[in-house]
Design a binder for these strands. Sequence first.
DNA 1: GATAATCCGGAACAATCGTTCCTTAATATT
DNA 2: AATATTAAGGAACGATTGTTCCGGATTATC
Lengths: 191, 191
Amino acid sequence: MPRTKAFRREEALDRAMTLFWKKGYHATSMQDLVDGMGINRSSMYDTFGDKHSLFLEALATYKKKFGPSDYYLKFHSAVEGIRTLVDDYIKEIISDSDNKGCFILNCTTEFSDEDKEVNKLLRGNLSDFQKLLTSLIAKGQQQSELNDNKDPEELSDFLIAGLQGMRMIALLVSDSKRLKTIGSNLLQGII
Amino acid sequence: MPRTKAFRREEALDRAMTLFWKKGYHATSMQDLVDGMGINRSSMYDTFGDKHSLFLEALATYKKKFGPSDYYLKFHSAVEGIRTLVDDYIKEIISDSDNKGCFILNCTTEFSDEDKEVNKLLRGNLSDFQKLLTSLIAKGQQQSELNDNKDPEELSDFLIAGLQGMRMIALLVSDSKRLKTIGSNLLQGII
DNA sequence: GATAATCCGGAACAATCGTTCCTTAATATT
DNA sequence: AATATTAAGGAACGATTGTTCCGGATTATC
């Protein structure tokens, strides 16, 4: 009976994610979204509800696609896992040609405490990141790849701070060599 | 002949700074500013021009008040200067009870490349910060307080990334002990 | 006290904001 | 072919956006 959907929900959501990612929540208008998502205004409201709901879905999509992944736990060497994670992080920054930055970090500054739902997602992402790195570092210490004179959790905090700060610097300075140097200094900090 | 100003320009600008700092550029309306600055709408336009000009002044004010200061160069021990800088940074974060974060970092994510004037100010701030830390680290190496096996500039990048990332984390997690631990790990990274 | 500069209150502007609604077109299932 | 569901097009809503303008109140200087 029903007509098949003429647009793919997932694809439209992907485009919304990119728009919010690039311009932020407040600066992105529904008109921008209608234009950028390639679907009708009515379809947008029917499919995603209001602007805020659409934004939450877009942010959740980003977290799923670009957020912490268990992939890095699968390396035999924990240190190799961490090194790959840092390298991938830098690659992601370098390939961000239009300087969108990290959607999560963008939201962290845009919504201080004004939006509880957004805040919960952001804290969840940070928590996931911390758990991942803590596991990796603990594993590296058990394998004696890493010095075990420091708490894995505290080293994880240190590493996350460094990576996120690196992302911020990259928004103002595009010099891949400098990023790589920061990355290598961060790795030395946890060995 | 002229009536004396009934409000102090500096004080009004200070309040505008706090408003933009807390909510960002796009989310702060002129009505918010009229209410928050405590002056009349007409006076606001007469004194500061349009919204964008007011914002630039507010941001410049922040940079002057909270940006990199040569104060830390005056310590006899460079390491003590750096340590004090890091401690002050952490104190500033902790005392930020309503989670405004860093105005500069907020702007870095809000304006990717859309505003050249803002971007110039942000890059200037980063550059000043780098020069300050590079001087401090170089001085520390000359005084043999620091190991000189690494380039001061690269250590400065490393330190800035860590400090800025710490600020981002603090927006989601309020735990001063964790911040201090990150700070001490950062200091160890440059020794 | 007259003059001139400033501040204030508030109305008004066009433009845009997010959102809703109605009508028409299209198509997969019965 | 009839039906039901979806997408599309577009007008319209009230609210808010940034900005301008005018009239009146205030006050330091002459």
